[in-house]
Design a protein around this nucleic acid. Sequence first.
DNA 1: AAGTGTAATTAGAATAATTCTAAATTAATT
DNA 2: AATTAATTTAGAATTATTCTAATTACACTT
Lengths: 146, 146
Amino acid sequence: MCMQLNPKYKTIFKEALEISSLKPTKQREHIFSLILNKKDHPTADEIFTRSRETMPSISLATVYNCLETLVESGLIRQVNFERESTRYCPNLKPHAHFHCKKTGAICDVDLPVSIFNSLKKHLPKNFQPEQIDINFNGSIHKTKNH
Amino acid sequence: MCMQLNPKYKTIFKEALEISSLKPTKQREHIFSLILNKKDHPTADEIFTRSRETMPSISLATVYNCLETLVESGLIRQVNFERESTRYCPNLKPHAHFHCKKTGAICDVDLPVSIFNSLKKHLPKNFQPEQIDINFNGSIHKTKNH
DNA sequence: AAGTGTAATTAGAATAATTCTAAATTAATT
DNA sequence: AATTAATTTAGAATTATTCTAATTACACTT
Ligand SMILES: [Mn+2]
Ligand SMILES: [Mn+2]
Ligand SMILES: [Zn+2]
Ligand SMILES: [Zn+2]
């Protein structure tokens, strides 16, 4: 039983792939819906494991292929921390990532576009940024609820 | 003939290692001076190749060990782009990195501390950042000098 | 000076995320 | 149905990095 995209995302999905004349295959849709439905930042291997629960025949190579396709189509983002496995993020709003070194937790940090604009102002005129990655590393303290 | 650190950096080097009771070995000093003297962003393998020119007996494992030590001592920084090899940066001032996808060039982009402070303001109160990595990806346009 | 103990270095094996290759499958088109 | 191109698949290959275990260097004691 494959994951289903809701109609809104189904349209976004099809149109994004169509722009590059790529096909909306069931593997691509399955992986996209897995990432959309659980809004964490899974690795390719975690996505592979989750995929097999409902699509047991999918291969790891296909997971990698689909993820590459989804990233190139702008449907998801890649997130990298140091040399760890690449992670994938369905949040397309401007945001940064916070990586807790103690627990491994990864959190989205929403940022106003103004910060990205102000960062761009510090570049020489001939530098054309396509993407800006902002990663916080540190720790998340437990808040005491006594 | 090993690389020599100038007296100012020699003191910084020794003191930084001493804090963690690590020894200022000639391999560690050699690698630190190589990185300081050519202010690019070399990979471990590039550093290994350069090291052997003047210290032919050094091993790749030692290069990795020394780099880890230098990073932990705060003498150099690690820089990562996507899944590429880790690179090393001697610039300890607050700055970002620009990665040109066409040429592979990597440039330091100096930033005022105020930008880092303003980024920190968007974190929840219980998030304690230790480091903030800012990476630009894009392309550097040649400026025409007619 | 010789001996002891610890840290650092070394060579090579192991690891693991990702990419590659080539064959099989699927889907669209004639 | 036959042809073609895109996609998926299994497994091999790649490669940056880490690990292991042996050797070396060096500070400290006798
Ligand atoms: Mn290992
Ligand atoms: Mn290969
Ligand atoms: Zn995210
Ligand atoms: Zn730098």
